[in-house]
Write a protein that binds this DNA or RNA. Structure first.
Ligand SMILES: [Mn+2]
Ligand SMILES: [Mn+2]
Ligand SMILES: [Mn+2]
Ligand SMILES: [Mn+2]
Lengths: 217, 217
DNA sequence: ATAAAAAGTTAGATGAACCTAATATTTTAA
DNA sequence: TTAAAATATTAGGTTCATCTAACTTTTTAT
C-alpha cells in the first residue's frame, strides 16, 4: 500500500477512467485540486511503482495492479458508508466525507467485521456497487433520469454521492434509492422534469438534479 | 487541529507526563521511535503553536491548550476501542492498533454517534477512563497487582493495553476487567504471584504480567 | 497552414518530517 | 572535581508532496 496521497490519486484516476479509459493529467489536477506539475511528478512515481502506465505527453491509465488497488480502496469507502448508515444511524448525506477518511484505515479485521455485520452487501447507500474482496465489481449500465421518455416508469438505482447539498435536496423532495417514479412531463425550455412518485405527490426536479439520478426501467 | 504526526507527539507527551509532569526529549524519541533531532525540531514547532512549553536544555510540558488537544485525541482513541469491542464485536486484544488510526478521524458527527450508541461510556475496554467531551477525565489512583499483600482480595480495574501478546496471554489465563482475585502467594525469588480467581482455578502470573494489571481493593 | 489555446514538462523552491554527524550542555559517577 | 555518560542542539541532507515560472508539445480554430 502506498501513502494516503498516492491512494487518493489512484482512486481519482480510476473514477475518471470510467468514461474513456484514458485520463488527462489536467482532469486529474482539477479533480484533486492540485497543479499540473504536481500531477506530473506523481505520475512518474506511480509509473515506477507500476501502478499507472505513463508516457510523456500521453494520457495515463491504471495498470492491473493499479486497478486492483483502486478497487480495494473503493470497497473500503463504500463498505464504510453503508456501515455508517446501517449500523451507526447516520444519514446518507453525511457519510461520504467520513468514508473519505475511513477508506485509508489499514486493518483487514476492521473491514472483515464491517462486511460480516452488513452481510456482504452489494451496494452502498447511494446505490453504487461494492467490489468484493477480490476486486470484482458489478458495473451496471446506468440511465439518467434526464434520458427517460415521458410516460415511462423506472426505479431509482443510484444517485450522485459527493455533494451534501444535493442529497439534502433529495431528502426534502423525499426521494430514495428503490423508489418507483413515472416521468409526467419533460420541459423543453429548461430541461426540468415532473415526476409521479409513490408518495402520490408530483415532484419537480431541475435538470441539474435529474442528471444526478440514475434509474432502471 | 494539527497533522497526524503532531497529534501523535502531543499524545505521547501527555502519556509520558503522567508520571512526572515533565518529559525528556529522549523519552519521547524512544516512545515515538524517532531520533532526538526530530523530536527537538518538532518541539520548536509545537512551542510556536503554544502546545508545549519549551526552553533549550529543559524538559518540556504541555500547555493547557496542548493538554486539551491530547485529551481530545485520547477520548477519540478510547471511544473507538470500546465501539470496536461493543458494537463491532472485536476482541480487546485487537482494537488498540485500529484505534491508533481512528483517533485521527476528523468528524464530530462520527464520534458523537459512537458516544450516543455507547451511552456516554466512562471506561474503555482496558479499564482506562474516557475523557468527556470537555476534556475532563477521572484519574484513579492505581494499584498494581505486584503491590498487593498476600491474602488481600481485589477487583481488576485496568490492564496495559498496547501489547497484543499480553492481552492474548490474559485471554488464555481467563482474566477480565471486573474480576475479583485473591493473592494466594507472592514468590520472593522471581516476583511471580498465585491468584485465586472466581473461576475457582488458581492462576499463576509472572511479575512481568502482574505489573501490567491494576486493581482496586 | 499557421496562430492561438490547451495540455504537459522541466527547473527550481518550499515546508513537513525525518535522518546522520558533529557539537554543546547537563548529570552522574569515579 | 574532573572524566564519562546522558541528554540536547545545530548543521546539513533526504524524501514526499506541493508550488510558480518558463518552456515544449499537441490540439483546435481561423
Ligand atoms: Mn462516497
Ligand atoms: Mn457512496
Ligand atoms: Mn489503546
Ligand atoms: Mn484502551
Amino acid at each position: 500500500m502506498g501513502s494516503l496521497t498516492e491512494e487518493n490519486y489512484i482512486k481519482s484516476i480510476y473514477a475518471l477512467s470510467q468514461a474513456t479509459g484514458e485520463v488527462y493529467l489536467s482532469e486529474l489536477a482539477k479533480k484533486l485540486d492540485v497543479k499540473l506539475p504536481s500531477v506530473n511528478s506523481m505520475m512518474k512515481r506511480l509509473a515506477t511503482k507500476k501502478l499507472v502506465a505513463y508516457a510523456p505527453y500521453k494520457g495515463i491509465r491504471l495498470t492491473e495492479k493499479g486497478k486492483k488497488e483502486a478497487l480495494a480502496i473503493i470497497r473500503k469507502h463504500r463498505l464504510a458508508e453503508l456501515f455508517l448508515v446501517k449500523v451507526m444511524g447516520l444519514g446518507w448525506e453525511e457519510v461520504h466525507d467520513i468514508a473519505e477518511q475511513l477508506e485509508h484505515v489499514n486493518s483487514s479485521r476492521f473491514y472483515e467485521r464491517i462486511d460480516e455485520l452488513l452481510n456482504s452487501p452489494k451496494f452502498d447507500p447511494h446505490g453504487e456497487p461494492i467490489p468484493d474482496s477480490n476486486g470484482k465489481i458489478h458495473t451496471q449500465k446506468r440511465t439518467s433520469l434526464i434520458d427517460l421518455a415521458e410516460g415511462l416508469t423506472a426505479t431509482i438505482t443510484a444517485v450522485a454521492e459527493d455533494e451534501k447539498l444535493f442529497l439534502d435536496h433529495l431528502n426534502t423532495k423525499g426521494l430514495q434509492i428503490g423508489d418507483a417514479v413515472t416521468i409526467k412531463k419533460r420541459e423543453l425550455f429548461d430541461g426540468s422534469i415532473t415526476l409521479q412518485h409513490k408518495s402520490k405527490k408530483e415532484i419537480l426536479l431541475t435538470h441539474q438534479v435529474a442528471e444526478r439520478i440514475w434509474v432502471e426501467v
